[in-house]
Every structure is written in structure tokens, then in C-alpha cells.
Simulated assay, not measured.
Amino acid sequence: MSLRKNILSALLLALGLIIHQIVPGSIGGMKFDIQLTTIFVIIAINMDFKNAILTGFAGGIITALTTTFPGGQIPNVIDKIITSIVAYLLLKILSKFLNKQIVVAIVGFVCTVISGTVFLMSALLIVGLPAPFTALFLGIVLPTALTNILATTLVYNLVRASQKAVGFNV
């Protein structure tokens, strides 16, 4: 991976950290995970499996540090790594058949649902849930997934436009 790709990934993860830090916790301390948006964009732009795993791990550590969910540190790392692998595979497969804009939107939704489900299941097994699974899924995961359709597409387009403006093509 080139230095430029590493810098871009680090900047996007830092952006995700800032956004994740200012989003307040809601139902049971669970918060809307906007860090996923930056993870999906990094994977969509770099399209490298090692980068996907590293991005998932780094994103998991970042969200673990800023979580308001009781005992959510380990589930954050688990869900980000699994979600990053699924996002990479979805991007790789769907990009052959669909426009990249559509693929990014699909990944934003599907992988956010996967992330939320893996997070809740691992939290349930490791520390328990502060509210019913269904309430957390319907109250946090699904609205976040819908939000991430727009957020992921918007951030992806902004990054691609800025890359064209500075003449940096990945």
C-alpha cells in the first residue's frame, strides 16, 4: 500500500473518530456508528484485502475507545473486522455488475446491518445487553443503516472529487 493511501485511510479514520466521539449514546448506551461510513469508503477506494482487515481493526479500536455501550470494547473490534471483510467481498463482487455509486450505497446499508447484528450478538454473549435485542436493533441498527446509505455515498463522492481535484487517482 502506498504512502498516499495510508495517509488517506488515516485521515478518514480520524474523521470517523471525531464524528463517532460527538454522536451521543442513545438506547442502552448504543450509538449510531458513523465510523462505519469511513471504513466502507476506505475499503471502496483502496480495494485491498490486507487494507480491509487493517482498517476494520483500526476502526474497531477507535470505536472501542469512544463507545458509550457498557462493555462494548471487545464487541466493537469483533464487529468491525468481520464487517470489513464482508464489505470488501461485497465491493469486489458487486463492482463487476453494478455502478460503484450503487455498490457503495448497498454496502453502506447491508454492512451496517451486519455490523450491528454482530456487535449485538457478541455483546450479548460477552457482557449482556442493557436493553432487549429487538429494541436495540430496531432503534439503533436499522436507522443507522438507512443513514449510512446516504452518508457512505456522500463521503465516497467527496473523497473521489477531492482526489480528482488534486490529481491523485487510487
Rank of each mutant, 00 (worst) to 15 (best):
P132Y: 07
V113Y: 00
L129T: 02
M121I: 14
L3F: 10
F40E: 05
A52S: 14
A161K: 15
P75A: 08
T117C: 09
I114T: 05
T134K: 14
I61Q: 08
T63V: 08
T153N: 11
I85N: 09
Y88I: 02
A131H: 07
L142Q: 01
L120T: 02
G28D: 01
F69Y: 14
H20C: 02
G25C: 10
R160G: 00
V141T: 08
V159Y: 10
R160L: 13
I81T: 13
T83L: 08
F109A: 07
M30I: 05
S9C: 13
G128L: 05
I114W: 04
V23W: 09
T152S: 13
A123L: 03
N51K: 12
F137S: 00
T63Q: 12
Q73P: 00
I27W: 05
G59W: 06
Y156E: 01
D79S: 10
F168D: 07
L136H: 01
C111E: 01
A64I: 00
L13E: 06
G72I: 01
G60Y: 06
S95M: 10
L138E: 02
S2N: 15
P24V: 04
D79K: 04
I102A: 14
A58W: 12
V41D: 09
L138N: 02
I53E: 05
I85C: 08
